[in-house]
């Protein structure tokens, strides 16, 4: 199955995904895209957990459990966030983050 693919590659992939997510969160203007960036961050975490579990501690399953829980919680978070985004759309008639700036400083 994973012959020849070493742990480092998974970690590099996860790190890249994490920072792509952070970069996307900070630069994107659309609220849905920002939400997608957060999902990227959480999936990077999942890759980390599963890879560590598979390669370093194969006799226990804590990393797998953690990844499963993170997936479930991310779904709940996305549900609440999207509900609020719909509400934002009703008030501001768009979901550009730069328009949601009634309160500052």
């Amino acid at each position: 199955m994973l012959h020849g693919i070493r742990l480092e590659y998974f970690l590099i992939l996860a790190t890249l995904m994490f920072f792509v997510g952070v970069y996307g969160f900070l630069t994107r203007k659309n609220l849905i895209t920002m939400l997608m960036s957060i999902e990227l961050i959480l999936n990077a975490v999942n890759i980390n957990f599963v890879a560590f579990n598979k390669f370093l501690f194969p006799d226990k399953l804590e990393g797998h459990f953690f990844a499963l829980i993170v997936i479930a919680v991310a779904a709940a978070e996305a549900a609440v966030a999207i509900a609020i985004i719909i509400n934002i759309y009703r008030h501001f008639s768009n979901i550009n983050v730069e328009n949601v700036d009634e309160m500052k400083y």
């Binding site: 966030a81 949601v100 309160m103």
Partner: peptide
């Protein structure tokens, strides 16, 4: 709703 979106993000 602005407070909500800022908090959840």
């Amino acid at each position: 709703s602005e407070a909500g979106i800022k908090f959840i993000f």
